[in-house]
Design a protein around this nucleic acid. Structure first.
Lengths: 217, 217
DNA sequence: CATTTAACCGACCTGCAAGTCGGTTCAGAT
DNA sequence: ATCTGAACCGACTTGCAGGTCGGTTAAATG
């Protein structure tokens, strides 16, 4: 009691770290299994058994399964979408090939051997659409952020002369997102090379129709 | 016993009709509610209460909830897909506008006041993908039929000079299906005019890129 | 050493929904 | 009139999964 507010003492910090680590393990494994089997088809015990944790441990950290999943969305899924689909858009170049590349990349089932599950937004979106409005809302928010960023980069591409002036950037963004979500629906058997190739090719054709027409001599 | 095989006697036919009618009512209501709330989120009682039928009635006609849904798929959903997406392709004209039209039509939330639910294949596909391989298979079969028909009509369009020779018809069909499924994911709040309009516009742009290039003078 | 408390354990509670089963109704056959 | 069986009823069984709760462990503190 020397008049200062005491700094967090070390042991408290340590326990906090322990707690955080367990939460992270729970979230990571949760995302993995929810992504594999779906949220409603996965019981908490499915996850807890794999981590050798108990119900008690779980409910010490999360107040419900729903709360748990919201944590997963807001920590892990948001991060993934940013890393795979939004940050790559930050470039000065022609946005169209960049978009194709980011989408192709995001259709990969898993990079290397870490975090080996692809992009799962579509499945979750559909699963929660008619079941849980709150979670559904969070997922849609993520899509909206993506859309806003796509529109922004498309408009910039228009200014820079990569995209024709007549193009409706919002429409294009919507169409890109729709086709991407749909591809994820079709790609059940994860790494379907054929589908991925077809998608990239057609996307390129479509994008060609957005380019300014070369002026005829 | 006059040596002929007796024709189905009338009362048997009558009871068969009664039975059929109940099954039809069950299937119709089932599709409606499954489509609204999802298969796994709908209990049989939800449906039976609305029809004032009992568990006993249900299990007299179907051997399980799964069997029930398979009936719905093979009777009603198959029909819908044919009517909305496959039969319209039967035409001698330029297939591209026909395809756009059929897709726009299929995005309508409901025609008139009968059968007022749109096209639900995508939701069911996602719901069953990780849960029930058998049902998932039936749904994929439907998609495959659609794809085959799209490819066929595109190839015909190529022969008739409506589509450029370099076009990969399988790829285009895949891309069409993907974008359509994705739109259905996005259109939570059913009749979203804006989304539908954007989709149709972009689809037309995309299709323009598939047309043969006019020969320059 | 005693005390406190975060982290964790696991048996139990509880609600829900699929599926069962013995019974009832009633139209038509004999 | 009686009988048969299809159609239907609804209380009950069963299993599952989310959530609860009293107890245990272990680390830090005094």
């Amino acid at each position: 009691m020397n008049g200062f507010i005491a700094p967090q003492n070390p042991n408290l910090m340590e326990t906090t770290l322990k707690s955080r680590e367990t939460m992270h393990r729970l979230c990571g494994k949760g995302l993995e299994i929810f992504n594999e089997k779906g949220y409603y088809n996965t019981s908490l015990d499915d996850i807890l058994n794999q981590l050798s944790l108990s119900k008690g441990a779980f409910y010490h950290h999360f107040k419900s399964k729903e709360d748990y999943f919201i944590s997963i969305v807001q920590n892990l899924i948001v991060q993934k979408v940013y890393a795979l689909l939004i940050e790559p858009l930050n470039t000065e170049e022609n946005p169209l090939p960049i978009i194709v590349e980011s989408l192709e990349n995001a259709l990969e089932p898993g990079k290397k051997n870490e975090m080996a599950y692809g992009f799962m937004l579509n499945d979750f979106l559909t699963e929660f659409n008619k079941r849980n409005e709150e979670i559904s809302g969070y997922l849609k928010d993520i899509l909206n952020v993506w859309e806003v960023n796509l529109v922004s980069v498309l408009k910039k591409g228009k200014l820079d002369g990569y995209i024709a002036r007549h193009v409706d950037c919002e429409g294009v963004a919507t169409y890109i997102i729709a086709s991407y979500l749909g591809m994820r629906s079709l790609m059940t058997d994860s790494s379907n090379r054929q589908l991925k190739y077809q998608y990239a090719q057609q996307l390129k054709h479509y994008f060609k129709s957005l380019e300014p027409q070369p002026v005829m001599a």
